[in-house]
Amino acid sequence: MSTATLAAGATATATPSASRRQRTSPDARRRRVALVMLAPALLGLAIFFVYPLIASIFYSFTRYNQLQDPEFVGLLNYRYLFTQDPQIAAAVTNTLWFVVILVPVRIVFALLVAGLLARARAASGFWRTLFYLPALVPPVASVVAFVFLFNPGTGPVNQILRAVGIPGPLWFNDPNWSKPSLVILGVWVMGDMMIIFLAALLEVPRDLYEAASLDGASGIQQVRHITLPTISPVIGFSVVTGVIAALQYFTEAAVASGVASGKATVGGGTGSGLGYPGTSLLTYTQLLYTRGFTSFQFGYASAMAVVLFVITAVLLVLTMRRISIFRAEES
């Protein structure tokens, strides 16, 4: 797999440098210096990226608990993963739910707020800082705070809803509401994304709008024909990184489960509160973590890791060429 990804990525390797290859010794000297400068990073890539990837593939065909030598079991782990694991269906469904709902909702909200800031000429200073603020809150703290705010009994949200005559749901304690509750949290902390969009919106040449305006284009037409096409690379970037982030959704779900379930073992994050309420917040990476580092089924966890890698890699291969920021060609 890694061959495919790297090869696909390597398409960008520039031809000009090849033709220049053996021309002068300064080139060779420069290359030597560059490689020296890159040496730690290259070593890092080998130790923390290439080797673990290969080792994961190796482990995925074994039964391994770290205390005994890995024992080759063929496709057993994959068979269990695809046909037998009673928890995998919930984990995959929940993860996909976050990919399909959380990512677009966050992007839309971030775009709307950025658009509002750009329109209102409030792109810097007070408003931007205000809307960015939640993104600063450490994720664990924001989850704990939200579980409190949405606490069915005494939380402020349900108190306010009650005051206006609406019976609030159980939020983080109801399997049907727990994921939407995390989406609300995700929207609240969308500051990073908003700032990227804002920067992109401000780069849209002003004269384009003026010309369109003179041609009698309406506001909506301007957004459709000028704004969105110009910033679409940024949106594409956000979608790709957002989807990859959602595929590994872990901290928010784990902490929310632990805190809302009130289990004393929360610190483990993935103990008896795993996926609480019910299995509604059990995500793929939490299941992987539990299998690997609670049950110490390293072989099975590795099989899950390989599958996750394949999915991410396919996604990257399909999209990387379109996201120019990821391309390496020299300017």
């Binding site: 398409t11 990073d192 990227i196 690379p233 970037f237 996201i323 120019s324």
Partner: peptide
């Protein structure tokens, strides 16, 4: 963790890509 890779970045217009190089492989 997930939030990490979402930070950054804005991109410029797309460019053509060179063929895969055998040496790299």
């Amino acid at each position: 963790m997930p939030a990490r890779s979402t930070r950054a970045v804005r991109s410029t217009a797309s460019r053509t890509t060179a063929p895969v190089r055998a040496t790299a492989r």
